[in-house]
Computed example of a mutant assay.
Amino acid sequence: MSMVGLYVPPRSRRAVLHRLSAGTKLSVLLLAVAAVVASANAYVAVAAAAVAALLHPLCGLGVRPALRTLRALAPFLAVIVLFQWLAGDWTAAVRVCGQLMAAALLATMVTASTRVSEMLDLFERLARPLARLGADPRRVSLVLAMTIRCIPMVASAWRTSREAYLARGLRGRPDAMVVPVIVGLLRSADALGEALTARGID
């Protein structure tokens, strides 16, 4: 099983990240993000974001995953810049934006180089101590798998609805774009529930 819309198969010998374990990559991700945030320095944040962006092609992932991530982050970055501009603190704007970009780009490297099956195996191992409290580690992994699957599904539904909205020449009617997305997601949820029930998962 591959991470729908996120996993990038190895295409060259430079794809070293694909050969690392999911646990190793997550540990490095947490340490790197913690170090960038703890530094509380705008220069460090910008440098970390630049390095994270450059690592994508250097590790054989190409530039598309990085561009996709930055495009998704753009609205949040714009809000941060506007807020900090009104507050008159450009240094904070640069620092926070740099930290967000660095964290998101590094996280993209992990998801783009790790199959869902590997990630879920890791989460299941990490959730085993919860079995003492009555939790089922396999169910925890299943919830995570469904979450991962639903993120690109929601994004795809929104993109399809927006394209249809623009193609019909509609303007000023957000309900014409939102309602089809909600209906489509509800149908997908029903189908998913029926599939889980058919497999004896309640």
Rank of each mutant, 00 (worst) to 15 (best):
S156V: 15
L77V: 09
R187E: 14
L70V: 05
S156N: 12
W90P: 11
R11F: 09
M177H: 06
V16F: 11
G23F: 02
G169M: 03
P9E: 02
G5T: 08
A104C: 13
V36Q: 05
R64G: 10
L29R: 03
D202L: 10
R128P: 08
V37Y: 02
S117K: 04
A45D: 00
L31H: 10
K25H: 05
S2Q: 13
E124Q: 12
I182C: 11
V181R: 01
R115P: 08
A45T: 03
L120V: 13
V16C: 07
A191W: 09
G98Q: 01
L67V: 11
P9T: 00
G60I: 02
P57Y: 06
R159V: 15
A66E: 03
S12N: 06
A40V: 13
R71K: 12
D190E: 15
T24I: 06
V81R: 06
R138E: 09
Q99K: 00
V178I: 15
T197Y: 10
Y43S: 15
E118T: 02
A15N: 09
C97G: 10
A47R: 01
V178R: 09
P57C: 08
L67S: 08
C150V: 13
G169Y: 07
D190H: 13
P9Q: 00
L26D: 01
P152A: 01
R14H: 14
L192T: 11
I151Q: 04
V140C: 07
E118H: 07
V116F: 00
L144E: 08
R159E: 15
E118Q: 14
A191L: 14
M101P: 00
A103I: 03
L106C: 11
V16T: 04
V44W: 00
M1K: 14
A45V: 01
A49M: 00
A66T: 03
R171F: 05
V37F: 07
L26W: 07
S117L: 12
A102R: 01
S21M: 07
V178T: 10
L170K: 10
P152Y: 03
G172L: 02
F76E: 04
M109H: 05
R11N: 14
D190G: 11
A92N: 13
A35Y: 06
L186G: 12
V36L: 05
A45N: 00
A157W: 01
V183A: 07
L6T: 04
P137Y: 00
A40F: 12
V36D: 04
A87Y: 13
A49L: 05
D136A: 09
L170H: 12
R199K: 14
S39H: 07
Y165N: 05
A176P: 00
L61W: 01
W158L: 12
M153F: 15
R13L: 15
T91K: 09
R187Q: 13
